[in-house]
Amino acid sequence: TTYKLIANGKTLKGETTTEAVDAETAERVFKEYAKKNGVDGEWTYDDATKTFTVTE
């Protein structure tokens, strides 16, 4: 399944996707990606669109 991340960070803005077996796995991947890019904010997830959003 393809999951999408929308990053609304102070230093990183944009979108990326990952293939994962479930939302929990995708969330781990995206949180690691955000951490590597210095983004720390509020996370939301929309199951209907398989989209995570992080906003600083």
Rank of each mutant, 00 (worst) to 15 (best):
N8Y: 15
V39N: 03
T25R: 06
D46Y: 04
K13D: 06
L12A: 06
T25I: 07
K10L: 14
G14D: 08
D47N: 09
K35D: 06
L5A: 02
D40K: 12
D46L: 04
E24P: 10
V21A: 14
T18D: 02
I6T: 04
F30K: 00
W43C: 01
E15C: 15
T16K: 09
K4C: 06
G14A: 13
I6Y: 07
A20L: 03
E32A: 13
A20W: 02
K13Q: 13
V29G: 04
D40H: 13
K4Q: 05
G14V: 15
T53V: 07
K10W: 10
T55C: 07
V29M: 10
K35W: 11
F52Y: 05
K13I: 12
T16A: 11
T11N: 13
T17D: 05
W43R: 00
Y33V: 05
A48S: 11
T55W: 11
K13T: 10
V21D: 12
V39A: 04
G9H: 08
A26D: 00
G9V: 12
A23R: 14
T18N: 03
E42K: 11
K4P: 01
V54W: 03
Y3W: 05
I6Q: 05
K31C: 05
W43L: 03
K4H: 13
D40P: 03
E32P: 01
G41H: 02
T18H: 07
T16H: 14
K10Q: 11
K35R: 14
D46M: 04
K36Y: 09
E27L: 15
K36M: 12
K31L: 06
T55Y: 10
E24W: 11
K13N: 10
N8M: 14
F30M: 03
Y45I: 01
T1R: 10
K31S: 04
T49W: 04
A23N: 06
E42Q: 13
T53E: 05
T25L: 05
T44F: 11
A20P: 02
A48P: 07
A26G: 02
A48L: 12
D47M: 09
E56Q: 09
T51D: 00
R28G: 06
E19P: 04
G38D: 06
F52N: 00
G38P: 01
F30D: 00
K36A: 14
D47E: 14
F52Q: 00
A7M: 15
V39K: 02
T51M: 04
T51K: 03
K10N: 11
T25H: 13
T55Q: 08
K50I: 02
A48M: 11
N8I: 15
N37M: 15
E24V: 11
T44V: 09
A34E: 01
A7C: 15
F30L: 04
N8R: 12
V54Q: 02
T1D: 10
K13E: 07
V21R: 12
G41Y: 03
L12P: 04
E32Y: 06
E56A: 09
A23G: 04
F52G: 00
D47L: 06
V21S: 12
T2S: 07
E32W: 07
K35S: 10
D46P: 00
D22W: 03
E19T: 14
T11M: 11
T2G: 04
A48H: 10
T55K: 07
K4M: 08
R28D: 04
T25Y: 06
E32S: 08
V29T: 11
E27I: 08
T18L: 14
Y33A: 03
G41P: 02
T1K: 11
A34R: 01
T55R: 07
A26L: 01
F30Y: 02
A23E: 07
T49E: 05
K50A: 05
K31H: 08
A20K: 02
Y3A: 01
V29S: 06
F52W: 06
D46F: 04
L5W: 05
Y45L: 02
T49K: 06
A48V: 12
L5E: 01
G41M: 03
K36T: 09
T44G: 06
T1L: 10
K4G: 02
